[in-house]
């Protein structure tokens, strides 16, 4: 009986350690920030900058197209 108890308790102890070891292996991620919804602020900021630069590019593109039309008209 005593031996059996020892065996069970050692298995339990092992499982205990194994579970903490597994949890330590789980990498830390920005879960809190995500759960608070702050990630959306980041997404919004990046989108504004990206779209701002793209609009800038579109304006240059249209300007170049207009110049090309004027050049073709001249020839």
């Amino acid at each position: 009986m005593n031996r059996k108890m020892k065996k069970i308790s050692s298995i339990l102890l092992f499982l205990c350690f194994a579970s903490t070891a597994l949890r330590a292996q789980e990498a830390q991620m920005a879960d809190t920030m995500r759960s608070e919804g702050k990630i959306y602020a980041l997404v919004a900021i990046i989108l504004v900058i990206l779209l701002g630069l793209i609009f800038f590019l579109v304006f240059i593109d249209r300007k170049v197209s207009r110049l090309e039309k004027r050049m073709d008209g001249k020839n």
Binding site: I39, L42, V43, I46, L47, L50, L51, I54
Partner: peptide, 13 residues
């Protein structure tokens, strides 16, 4: 433009 916007959103979320 669509792909880059998708990348910014999907890449973070």
């Amino acid at each position: 433009v669509v792909l880059l916007v998708y990348t910014a959103v999907g890449g973070l979320l």
